[in-house]
Design a protein around this nucleic acid. Structure first.
Lengths: 183, 183
DNA sequence: TATGTTTCTGAACATCGTGTTCGGTTATAC
DNA sequence: GTATAACCGAACACGATGTTCAGAAACATA
């Protein structure tokens, strides 16, 4: 939970680090980035970095915080039913699209979104089925979502969020319905 | 291409390193493994490791070589048609199952299999479609495959390969057909 | 069994990234 | 204007990487 009033310097430092990380992820991918890279780009002292974050992973996570809060809100105000997975995926497409040019990157999506969707699906999907284990079904749906989202971001958002969600549903729903009914 | 006759010591060293890596992947995951871990486990000198492989990635890749060769064979003897993607996926399920207890791990699957399937799909799938970009479709199918494969290995091969491939097809085919026909 | 060749060993070394510490400097809030 | 909080940056210990080299061991051959 953020302080009511935050020292300008703190805000400036954190923003700067987040932006630097975002840029570097685009340039060379998260795995190849060092703390040195980030603090050089952000013009921040080494000790300052560690005063704010205990690792690059923490810094990465901090940039995802705004979206995380939105999804929490969304989920706490939603009933679980047959439509809720599609509503959640639509929200995710929309929110990510809105962040274009911000510091939300593919790395954020792949690292955090998958888990959110999976958790939701595990409770939203029917629990018992003789044709397929429910966790497998959840994995399949969540993976498919991430695949579409990854392609979408990689290709620079060629379609609007609504169209992506439609594609997602058209691809995934028929098979899942078929397998739940039995062949 | 392996030598006709290989010095016993070379064979022993390489096997030992591959096995050590396989064990360590199961124990703590590929990302957390260091060269030191591997050579300690394998009882091999530091300089020996670097005489054989130039990195952990190379060592990992070397263990996948047998499977890679099989898939090359399979693909070079197969016509591209509507059935070939399912035949390839079945082969992959079967070959991975056969390697149970060998040094093929989840890491191998996720790092190499995806690329193989994707390449095949890009040529095997119909090239033009007004409803969905072909590369997106290929990504979706390949990701779904990896999702099922991952679950299967994670849960210790609860079903035979044939059943997994059937599930894969039942989940993926209806949606892809529907979207190719137009809604 | 003797010989020449290949492989393995292990210690030493340079290099790089991490995470911490601390005395000194600067910006901010009031 | 002053007390306080944040930032700086140099120094340090640590651990992993990748290379080098001289000596020991295993191998193929005859």
């Amino acid at each position: 939970m953020p302080q009511k009033v935050m020292d300008r310097r703190v805000e400036r430092t954190r923003r700067s680090l987040q932006n630097a990380l975002g840029q570097l992820i685009m340039e060379k991918g998260f795995e190849k980035i060092t703390v040195q890279d980030v603090i050089d780009r952000a013009n921040v002292g080494r000790s300052t970095f560690y005063a704010h974050f205990e690792s690059l992973d923490q810094l990465l996570l901090s940039g995802f915080e705004p979206l995380r809060a939105q999804f929490e809100d969304f989920l706490s105000g939603t009933e679980y039913d047959n439509e809720s997975p599609w509503a959640l995926s639509l929200t995710m497409f929309q929110q990510v699209q809105k962040q274009q040019g911000g510091y939300i990157t593919l790395t954020h999506v792949q690292k955090y979104l998958y888990g959110y969707l999976l958790d939701h699906l595990k409770t939203a999907l029917p629990k018992r089925n003789k044709n397929i284990p429910p966790e497998l079904l959840a994995h399949y749906v969540a993976s498919s979502f991430i695949a579409l989202m990854t392609w979408w971001i990689d290709n620079n958002y060629p379609f609007p969020a609504e169209k992506m969600n439609e594609l997602f549903r058209q691809l995934v729903e028929p098979g899942t319905l078929a397998i739940m009914m039995g062949e």
